[in-house]
Design a protein around this nucleic acid. Structure first.
Length: 487
RNA sequence: CGGGGCGUAGCGCAGUCCGGUAGCGCGCCUGCUUUGGGAGCAGGAGGUCCUCGGUUCGAAUCCGAGCGCCCCGACCA
């Protein structure tokens, strides 16, 4: 670290900065097991808020939670060819249990399509049993060679939605609906606005017909795939005999979708809003939205300011504000400021003798954002109404700032491959360019620049004037693609 | 799995080249004074120097092997 109290500046070493923020804000810690991490209470608090929000949205769109086992028979995974090929290198396998070698090895789920659709097959007989809309919150294991806190760990927490439908159109609608849910979550809760689009064949989920994703742009201008939604077609249904009787009495395989988002989102949050002081958590997801720091000298002042702090806290809690009073007597106010800023608490209220005299509290925002004063006094008797407003403003300003940063670092109308390379190898960012649709052109760019097609963006994200030529071969452009290096 | 770096007190590090029995800052504990942006003074606790083996009268230091972690690359939510 640059010095013992500050962090390595982002501009100097983004990667080091990221690790330091995660550790120093007490989001997570390294575990004794290589590639795994311990999510600490503060980090888990953010994840719990994410879960709560997403879970509510899943329920609102008709899904129910269930839980499927961690262990999957090896033979299940092997049934879908593309699927097993995609995951084989990274699965962990249990070969021994109960002191004996198992007859059939058990895979620790890298994802649960196989076991879930095997169960769906038992539960679905008729079109009347469809759609079946299930979600599970679970841990999964993917034995990655190279890991990073939150962004890629051997074990991670996520949710995986799995649905079965009676028609391809319905499955496609569901796939896009859930992509939209993720988008709404990222906009409204995380203030991390994604670009939506379809994945290319080489980037799609192993076993899917089509994959869609939400791609967010981090502060180092690398892309983060933040959520994916897959139309699985009938691929898994065929392998697991997930059949149903149609309205007309015939028989057909069900159409499946799956969609997921993981604790990786926490890493995205850090890399979207954090600054050189530390973490910045959007109010909607902050475990602590407001921290109150009393300031005093004498014992009498201590009693008074702490009393006022408790009163303000109670008034805010009545407004559903998550508030913490830092009443520690052994730490000076300045030290508390730094600590809570490092942890990204959106709003701090300072209450000292001078404030009490004036009947006010001093409010300080975590980050300076356009149009919003960093410090302002709030009348004591209006705190309960003003603080929720300030939190809302801060949330909106974070989204606005993130959106602006994304657009400022997006490049459109790039036609020359040399120019493309200049951007990728220089500042980086989302590069919109034409693509002929050939895997060869896609692979060439990846090999030469490490940039990949993050997605083929949906209409609303596309450039008004569609590219006509493929960035790589100069042939006719079939799509506009968003390229970038990615996490 | 290749390249680089690093393993010494809870954290960050010095000491290693040139062997002589372990130190600095932060943090922690006690007391007093402090408290509006990382407090001061005094006292104190805390270390199998990653592991194993070798060389030596003597190893944190030299030699060999192994393990672990971080960063960069190939593969990936």
């Amino acid at each position: 670290m640059a010095d013992e109290q500050g962090l390595t500046p982002r501009a100097q070493d983004f990667s080091a900065w990221y690790n330091e923020v995660v550790l120093r804000a007490e989001l997570a810690d390294y575990s004794p097991v290589r590639g795994c991490m311990v999510i600490r209470p503060y980090g888990y608090g953010i994840w719990e808020n994410m879960q709560r929000a997403l879970d509510g949205m899943f329920k609102a769109t008709g899904h129910q939670n269930a839980y499927f086992p961690l262990f999957i028979p090896m033979s299940f995974l092997e049934r879908e060819k593309e699927h097993v090929e995609g995951f084989a290198p990274e699965v962990a396998v249990v070969t021994h249990a109960g002191g004996k070698e198992l007859e059939e090895p058990l895979v620790i789920r890298p994802t649960s399509e196989t076991i879930i659709y095997a169960m769906f097959a038992k539960w679905v007989q008729s079109y009347r049993d469809l759609p079946l809309l299930i979600n599970q919150w679970a841990n999964v294991v993917r034995w990655e060679l190279r890991t990073r806190l939150f962004l890629r760990t051997a074990e991670f927490l996520w949710q995986e939605g799995h649905t079965a439908h009676a028609s391809e159109a319905e499955a496609e609608e569901e796939t896009l609906r859930m992509l939209g849910v993720y988008r709404e979550f990222m906009d409204d809760w995380m203030a991390m606005p994604p670009v939506l689009g379809r994945k290319t064949e080489s980037e799609k989920f192993a076993g899917a017909l089509r994959t869609y994703s939400c791609e967010a742009l981090m502060q180092d201008n690398k892309a983060l795939q933040a959520a994916t939604s897959h139309n699985l077609g009938q691929n898994f249904a065929r392998q697991f005999e997930l059949k149903y009787q149609t309205v007309t009495g015939g028989e057909d395989y069900a159409w499946n979708t799956s969609w997921g988002a993981s604790t990786r989102l926490v890493g995205g949050l850090v890399m979207t809003h954090g600054d050189d002081v530390g973490l910045v958590v959007p109010p909607q997801l902050a475990p602590i939205q407001v921290v109150i720091v009393p300031i005093y000298r004498s014992e009498e002042e201590r009693t008074q300011t702490l009393g006022a702090a408790d009163q303000v806290a109670a008034a805010l809690r009545a407004q559903q504000v998550r508030v913490h009073v830092d009443a520690r007597d052994t730490v000076k106010p300045g030290a508390k400021y730094f600590e809570w800023e490092r942890k990204g608490v959106p709003l701090r209220l300072e209450i000292g003798p001078k404030d009490l005299e004036r009947g006010q509290v001093m409010a300080v925002r975590r980050r300076e954002l356009e149009g919003l004063a960093r410090k302002e006094p709030l009348p004591m008797d209006a705190v309960a109404t003003l603080v929720p407003q300030r939190l809302g403003e801060f949330q909106r300003a974070l989204l606005e700032a993130a959106r602006r940063r994304r657009e400022e670092n997006s490049y459109r109308g790039i036609e020359s491959y040399d120019r493309f390379r200049e951007i990728v190898e220089g500042p980086g960012g989302f590069i919109y360019a034409g693509w002929c649709g050939s895997a060869a052109c896609e692979a060439k760019v990846k090999e030469e620049t490490k940039a990949t097609i993050r997605c083929l963006p949906f209409e609303e994200f596309r450039t008004p004037e569609a590219p006509t030529r493929c960035l790589v071969c100069g042939g006719e452009a079939k799509h506009e693609a968003v390229w970038d290096r990615a996490y």
